[in-house]
Structures are given as structure tokens and as C-alpha cells.
Amino acid sequence: MRLRTEDLTYEIPSGRRLVDAVSLTVSAGETVGLVGPNGSGKTTLLRCVYGALRPTGGRVLLDGEDLADAGAKARARRIATVPQDGQAGFELTVRQIVAMGRSPHKRFWEADTAADGELVRGALERVGAADLAGRSFARLSGGERQRVLTARALVQEPAVLVLDEPTNHLDIRYQLEILGLVRDLGTANLLALHDLTLAAYYCDRLYVLDAGRVVASGPPKDVLTGELLAEVYGVAAEVAVHPATGAPTVTYLPGVPGAIRP
């Protein structure tokens, strides 16, 4: 399974392009990171990929098939995501919320089977939320919700996983666990990440977005350089390969004169 965008563009009515002719590919088993400053178009790009937005130009292809031609259900069978504002939905339990991930595989009147229940249980265990199963989703903390919604994405049994800041509300242990879990799934993963060090460690390749355009792409050690961070983020930083992880590590230098450009 291979996800590809071709000159993907999203233009708002004022004419500004939030995403400007982005072409990227993600293959099965690969984890690809999308980095860039606030407002660079990461979320908009991802929403176009998982179908919450209809691109105004370009295409999203899955194994060469244009997703614009596929229905919402066919798309949901292959692409799973964690929407950023997961809504509470009255008093549904965590188990009920996660079981919704089976919906794209079901006719609308079909009930869940024991096998579905098993999938739900397994997914909750994998995100460390097995003990939350009977709780009300509305009453969970932000981090707990995020893990539960990640479990729901797993239950969808997708070929492609599109995640927008999957570590947003998580404490550091769960950040590492969730990213490790996602990387080992074997799915084609497209992740927007704020934390450049985490991105460098968990992603096979990075795309750097600035003002809706891809300004750099490639393996983290090629992409993450002091010059690029200065240019795209406007900050001074030092990038070094950490001896223990072997991945580039970013150290910001806020005290250095001229570190933050006006």
C-alpha cells in the first residue's frame, strides 16, 4: 500500500493557499513525519488526506487510485486517523467509542461480533488503556482520550495511519510508547509532529512545510540542520547526532544573541 499526494493544494476563498502543490509519498511500513512552524499547513494537508477537507487542487492517491472517487466508507476502511478535537458524545463508554472503529467494515445495521470485541480489547491494551474500557469517554483527561482514540484507529485495521500531533496531550512515557507502537504497525504512517527530536528518532523520512510548501525532505539527519531551522522556524539551534540513539537531536539556543529573528 502506498499513499501519494500529487500537487495537493488547498486554497481558501480569499485566494490564500494553505497547502500549495505538495507532493509526497508514504509506503507501507514507513513512518513519515511532517514538520514545520504553526500555520505552515500541516493540519490542512492531513485533513485533505483523511477526507475531512476536499482539496481544491491535486490528488490523493492510494495505490494509484484517486481517493476523491472513493466514498467516505471505502476511504475509512483504508485510512485511519485521530481527529484533533475528539468530541465527547454524551456518555458513551470508552469501549463503545473504540468499537466505532469497526464501522467502516460493517453494513450500517450490522451489530458488533465477539471478534470485534476482541479487537477492541486488544487495541485498548496496546495503548495502555485497558482499565478505561468501562469509563465514560467524556470524563477522561486529554491524554487518556488521545490514547483511546488511537486505539480506535487501530481497530479500524487501516493500511494508512494519518496522525496529527499524536503525542499532543501525552506525558513523555506515552509519547514514546505510542510513537513506537505506530512505527511497528507496518502501516504507512504520515505524522505531523511538533517535537523535532521525536520526529528525528521515530520517522524514516521528514517533509518540512513552510507556508504551505515543502521546503525540504529526506532522512532526518539530512533535513534537520541548523541552517534549515534558522530559515524555517527563525530560531538558532544546534543539531547533533546523539551517541545513544544515533538520531539527530535538536538543542535550541534561546540565550544566544540573535537567536530569535524578528
Partner: peptide, 24 residues
């Protein structure tokens, strides 16, 4: 009652329902 599944999906919001395959 037959539409219970999509009705449940509505509870998680428009975007949530869409990414779970509902033509909202």
C-alpha cells in the same frame, strides 16, 4: 433503530463521523 450505528457516529462530531466512514 436500524440506523443506530451511524446515529452513534454522529455523537463524536462531524469530522469524527466522516473519518469513520459516514457520509454525514
Amino acid at each position: 433503530i436500524a440506523l443506530a450505528r451511524p446515529l452513534d457516529l454522529l455523537l463524536v462530531g462531524e469530522e469524527g463521523a466522516t473519518v469513520l466512514g459516514l457520509d454525514t
